[in-house]
Design a protein around this nucleic acid. Structure first.
Length: 499
RNA sequence: GGCGAGUUGGCGGAGUGGUGACGCAGCGGAUUGCAAAUCCGUGUACAGGAGUUCGAUUCUCCUACUCGCCUCCA
């Protein structure tokens, strides 16, 4: 069995991964707050942990891994949208409108993430479905002396009651107070105490609780949901490193205090943040965009995934136009390898090959996806289709989809000594009308070239070629034939009048 | 101010106690009517300083710089 090594934030070291139960490897990843479209940064942990999920399934078996990723659907921004809709005259109660907004953004999220090749987790719990377990947990924390109500509808967690508080993020409560950037509130016994439950006004969603009508704080949901779905002890807990503090620290405090004898999560994995052209993505810098924006612009999800996997998950990843273009070129070459020559399709017929050990070794070494992609490039270069196919699949790329999306459209005109004619491969991205034009042009260019080879007058050939290039069509000629490949900048209108 | 991460060739990006991937770009060549594509070849890189060592880019310390978190945030 492949030995997996993972960098455990808790230990600040790469460790051998040993699951609690190798028949049920359990992973929890903090999911999105579903108030709007997922931005590109939201997609990084999804892709990172999707690779880990696939690796775990490969190593332990697809039926022996449980992956849970939550949706946070208790949030003021969701409420604000719902309230605005209600005020604009939308039918339904506020609760219904909140639920409607969450449903809407969850559907967007799943569509976008699937476009990136991310598998759906086994469970995708919503915070609003786990209010009672949260209330139960809060009551238990109060009973054990780790939390206290303030009498005004809040319940707070007492960080001083948990001596290991700060272990994950390497901070001490005293240091943080010294940093003096903590919110001062007179209902807190300690400035670092955080909210488990807070009151809701009438215009906010709320649930009845022993402390009055209210809603849960942010951190308690993950403690409650992971416990319900994975148990008091599970293997991996993941998320972006911005969640390390305070979110994960607080989760640990809540869960460990509720279940003092359990280990909660054994391995804590954190991905680094994403940047755009060297800068943090932010609305004020004008470099903020969603996954959906990119997809709409015609950037295939596979390209986004490929770019993401090119950088190790624990390093900041810079999304740049140049990387986008390089990834697209690489995927195109893969597609042409699989789809270009019918003879190469024997890879379909031979069945699935084994994943090369070097790929497994790379991924098992704390998800060295960048190194794995290096091997993938090597397989492309050496035309090792079986290895390439198996490796791509493990990393979440479907060769069939790559062929369909990136092989694009090409026209061959030529003479193979037996048959003289025109063939083409299309994926529907070029209309049939345009494909007819291209087919005619390819035949015309081939004939013109044959003539020119005898007369040595290449003016007509050059005229056609220049016009095709201008229209965004790549032209490849040899004595065997002509290939026309419309590229991303293909403009069919520029071909009018050539025929 | 506190905590943490990082600094590898033109760019991106792995990795290692013993001359150092890979991709892109560049350069040279083959090929091509010219190109494109392809193929072959090609690179005085490991922030600076000190230390450990037979030997460090890889380990330790210091300095500089960059970035993140500390507030909703993946």
């Amino acid at each position: 069995m492949t030995d997996i090594k993972l960098y455990n934030t808790m230990a600040r070291a790469k460790q051998d991964f040993t699951p609690i139960d190798d028949k049920n490897v359990r992973m929890y990843v903090c999911g999105p707050t579903v108030y709007d479209r997922a931005h590109l940064g939201n997609a990084r942990p999804v892709v990172v942990f999707d690779v880990l999920y696939r690796l775990l399934r490969h190593v332990y078996g697809p039926d022996h891994v449980t992956y849970v990723r939550n949706f946070t659907d208790v949030d003021d921004k969701i409420n604000a949208t719902a309230l605005a809709r209600k005020e604009a005259g939308a039918p339904g109660t506020l609760e219904e409108l909140v639920h409607e907004r969450s449903n809407e953004t969850i559907a967007w999220y799943l569509n976008d993430m699937r476009a990136l090749g991310a598998m759906d987790p086994n469970e995708m719990p919503r915070a609003t479905e786990f209010i009672q377990p949260m209330i139960d947990m809060i009551e238990d924390l109060i009973a054990k002396g780790h939390a206290y109500p303030d009498g005004a509808g809040h319940v707070l967690f007492s960080v001083k009651s948990y001596e290991d508080y700060g272990q994950l993020s390497g901070r001490s409560v005293d240091d943080m107070i010294a940093g003096a950037r903590v919110e001062v509130a007179d209902n807190k016994r300690d400035p670092m105490d955080f909210v488990l439950w807070k009151p809701s006004t009438d215009d906010l969603p709320g649930w009845d609780s022993p402390w009055g009508r209210g809603r849960p704080g942010w951190h308690i949901e993950c403690s409650a949901m992971s416990h319900d779905l994975l148990g008091a002890s599970f293997d991996i807990h993941g998320g972006g490193n911005d969640l390390q503090f305070p979110h994960h620290e607080n989760e640990i405090a809540q869960s460990k205090c509720t279940h003092p004898d359990a280990g909660f999560a054994n391995y804590w994995l954190h991905n680094e943040m994403l940047q755009v052209e060297g800068k943090k993505m932010s609305k004020s810098l004008g470099n903020f965009f969603t996954v959906h924006d990119l997809l709409e612009q015609g950037v295939p999800g596979e390209v986004i995934r490929f770019v993401f996997l090119g950088t190790h998950y624990r390093k900041p990843m810079d999304w740049t136009e140049k990387k986008r273009a390089e990834a697209e070129a690489t995927l195109r070459s893969i597609a042409q390898l699989f789809g270009g020559d019918p003879h190469s399709r024997e890879w379909y017929l031979r069945g699935r090959g084994n994943v090369p050990q070097e790929i497994l070794d790379a991924l098992s070494n704390d998800l060295n996806t960048s190194l794995a992609l290096t091997y993938i490039r090597k397989y492309v270069k050496n035309r090792e289709l079986s290895k390439l196919d198996a490796s791509l699949r493990l990393m979440g790329f479907e060769p069939e989809a790559l062929v369909e999306k990136f092989h694009g459209f090409e026209v061959h005109a030529g003479d193979n000594g037996v048959v003289r004619g025109v063939s083409y491969h299309g994926d529907g991205s070029v209309s049939s009308e345009h494909s007819e034009v291209l087919r005619s042009l390819s035949a015309q260019l081939f004939d013109a070239r044959e003539t020119a080879m005898e007369t040595k007058d290449f003016s007509e050939v050059d005229r056609l070629k220049a016009a095709l290039l201008d229209a965004g069509v790549e032209v490849r000629m040899s004595k065997n034939g002509v290939e026309l490949l419309p590229g991303t900048g293909f403009d069919a209108s520029k071909l009018e009048g050539l025929l």
